[in-house]
Amino acid sequence: MKVSKEEILHIAKLANLNLKEEEIDTYLLHLQDILNFANIVNNAPVEGLKETIGTNKNYNVFRKDEIINFEDNEALLANAPEKERNMFKIPKVIQ
């Protein structure tokens, strides 16, 4: 499958990444290269095979509905680039 410049820009937008004009061609080339290789999966003899969901056979792994308070609340906010009144501060978002 051929990837267009518009597509890669759309994808970068979904991923919240900026691509500089001069980088786009390199990213496009690399992505195309890798996708061409990855396309092998479309030739694999997988007729009738189910998709693997989960690497092991674990199922119904549940937790009891019991409260455990995290012991170091302060540390959870210690890495914040900007905070105010114990909240993470960001530029104004209009909802």
């Binding site: 549940f62 308070n69 995290f70 959870l76 114990n86 909240m87």
Partner: peptide, 30 residues
């Protein structure tokens, strides 16, 4: 395992999981 209680001082009902700290993992409440 954080409480669901409404209200509370901001960010006090939190832990590495619900704060999405790197490496934290979810386990489903039965």
């Amino acid at each position: 395992s954080c409480p669901t209680e409404f209200g509370g001082e901001p960010n006090t009902h939190t832990c590495p999981v619900c704060m999405a700290m790197p490496g934290a993992l979810p386990v489903l409440n039965e």
